[in-house]
Amino acid sequence: MPSPQTPPMDGSAIDPTALRPPIKDAAIERIAPAELRTRLQALREDGYMMLLDLGAVDYPQRVPRFDVVYHLLKMPVAAATPDQIGTPQRYRLLCGVPIENLSLPTITDLWRNADWAEREVFDLFGITFEGHPDLRRIQMPTHWEGHPLRKDYPLRGPAKERSPRPPFANKSNLVAGTPPSGRTAEALQQQVALRQAQDRKEEPKA
């Protein structure tokens, strides 16, 4: 049987969302940041009462570079049986955000649960949401530099100088470091003797 796999196109696709196979997982719409709020408001009036999720994707080679993805679900706001709910419609809004203007209007006034999701996008991608009541880092510590889920952020974090060893750690170390002969028992004995002689010298004479 032939495999459905296709080899990568020139290594990787620049905008995978444009090449997606016909998967029926949601109604999909791409929208500009300026129209975002009016479109979301219209969808909300249309019955998409639940904001399922809000996340971001970084496409480094594409213009605009970032996608903020809104997942909506058509959901009644009163008690309902499984038959009344049936198969609710899912809606996916993709909003391109250019690197020059990393800002979107907030939707926390429309959906309260957008609060933490927007904070997470801000924290991990560096996209700000104007009008958010409390926009600060949520996953990373407050003083963290950089936005880890960006593609240009290294996996193990930025290279940093090692913090100096605390004084007590230095004190217990042998003075001359590891002897050239390696950590043999004899070499260690010599080191210890050397250190003891040095300590005796340092002791104030009574």
Binding site: M9, S12, I23, D25
Partner: peptide, 23 residues
Amino acid sequence: PGDVYQAIESPRGELGYYVVSDG
């Protein structure tokens, strides 16, 4: 390449993955 949203009913609720592949 493509993107997909898949959800299941986890013990805590709708667990969803939005997975993007570039090939």
